[in-house]
Each structure stands twice: as C-alpha cells, then as structure tokens.
Design a protein around this nucleic acid. Structure first.
Length: 237
DNA sequence: CGGCTTTGACCAGCGC
DNA sequence: GCGCTGGTCAAAGCCG
C-alpha cells in the first residue's frame, strides 16, 4: 500500500479488510466517502468509474494497482461530494467495496466463497475447509483475468460506460437471488460480467468482470464528456 | 425491424 | 457412468 493509502487508512477513511491475501487487498469505503447518488441514475459517474476501473483491473498486471485504484476512487469520491445532488440521495448509507484477485488465479466460485466467508478459521484456508480447497484447486483452469467488487445498491447493473447484453440467468445453489450473465455488445470484445446479490445481504450487489475491453466505453452515455472527473476514465483507459 | 430480455435446453467439469 | 452444478446457447417474445 502506498503512503497515501496508508495515510488514509490511518485516518480511518477506509478500512482494509483482513480477507484473503490471495485475492489482494480488500477495501471497504465508508458511507462518508461513498456519498454517491443511486446507481444507475444520471449522476452515477463515480460508480461508473469504479465499475470501469474494476473492469480494467481485471486484466491489470501493475503491482499495487489496488492501492492506486483506491486512491483514485477516494479522490473521485471526494470530488463527487461537492457536486452531489441531495435530491437523488439513496436514502441510506452507501457502501462500496472492491478487491482485486490475482489474474488467472481464482475462479469466481472461490471469490464467491471468500466474499461469503466472514469467519476465517485457523485450520481453514480463507474459511474454506482444506478438503474443499483441494477440490477447488483440482477444478481450477486458466480463465480470463477477473475482478469483482460489491456495492450496496437497489439496482443490479452498474452503469460502467459499456453496453452489455444479458445472455443468461441462473439460480445458483444456496442463494435466493439469480445470477445474471452479461456480455459486452461490442464486436470482438469478449468481456463478460456477472451480477448477483449477496445471499447474506440482498442489498449488496456483487459484480464480476472477466476479460478486458478492446475498445473505449460507449459514448452514448448522457453526459460522460461533461463530468469533471472524466480524466479518471483516461487514467484507466 | 432491430436490439434486447427471458428462459428452457444443452454442455462441460467434477464428485461419488 | 450418473447426477449435480455452473455457464452458455438460442428460440421466442417484448419493446421502442
């Protein structure tokens, strides 16, 4: 973690969770810094940036990118606070967290389990029994790099600047909410994302990006060019 | 009519 | 080999 991130951590601006080291750092943004409008509304650029950044990070091999991303998001959140429209308040605390998994290393199932595992036992690996880990490893295969994050939102799909087409929906075992599968509509772009709600807390939406876009975000976003932090997009793209 | 969502069918990987 | 599960396909329907 960079000195800036460490300083913010010291100030309690965000907390770094002691979740899975294999998955990289896991940051949770308190509501004070996630003071963003409801997801999906016209002013959701900050969340869009986060989602876009998440997609970018999926294939990012730059060391400490999680910390870099965090700093960027924090500065973004701070700048957004000044232009926040009270009329579009979410009506409750907003929480956004994200983490970066190692590219081609952890399958979604494992990420899911890690996210769901609150308790990390001494004898367990990320809260997953050794026997199960063995099975998981056996099933592991090379996949597109992926990156997932969760947001507290009443809408499922984040507006990340790209156009997505839903190609499937599945009710996964032991969950009440179906998982939706989306694919980037751009030709030759094989990026996918999965969206589902956390079983323990249906208010939390987990979005997983897989792959890397081979194009820029679509320009049909209402006012993306007018956003003050459009440079953030440039940072990531 | 084109683009999108829905949804049942199908397939592959895995455990037993 | 069989059953379970997650992921994908594709036909049908919806909507602007």
């Amino acid at each position: 973690m960079s000195s800036t991130s460490q300083a913010m951590l010291n100030q309690g601006l965000f907390e770094e969770q002691e979740i899975p080291t294999q998955m990289g750092n896991f940051f949770i943004f308190p509501s004070s810094l996630s003071n963003c409008p409801p997801l999906g509304c016209h002013q959701s650029l900050k969340v869009s940036n986060i989602a876009a950044a998440a997609a970018s990070l999926a294939a990012d091999a730059v060391p400490n990118s999680a910390a870099t991303l965090t700093e960027t998001l924090l500065s973004s959140a701070t700048s957004q606070k000044h232009r926040h429209d009270p009329a579009s308040d979410f009506g409750g605390p907003q929480l956004l967290s994200l983490h970066r998994s190692s590219a081609n290393f952890w399958a979604w199932e494992e990420v899911n389990e890690c996210l769901g595992s609150k308790k990390i036992g001494v004898d367990d690996h990320l809260g997953v029994p050794a026997m199960k880990m063995k099975r998981i490893k056996a099933r592991r295969k090379v996949r597109e790099p992926r990156f997932c994050f969760k947001t507290m939102s009443d809408v499922d799909v984040l507006d990340d600047g790209y156009k997505w087409r839903k190609y499937g929906q599945k009710v996964v075992k032991n969950t009440q909410h179906p998982r939706s599968y989306y694919r980037c509509t751009q030709d030759n772009c094989r990026v996918k994302k999965r969206v589902e709600r956390l079983a323990e807390d249906p208010r939390m939406v987990i979005t997983t990006y897989e792959g890397r876009h081979v194009h820029s975000p679509s320009h049909d976003l209402e006012d993306s060019s007018q956003q003050p932090n459009s440079q953030l997009n440039n940072f990531f793209w």
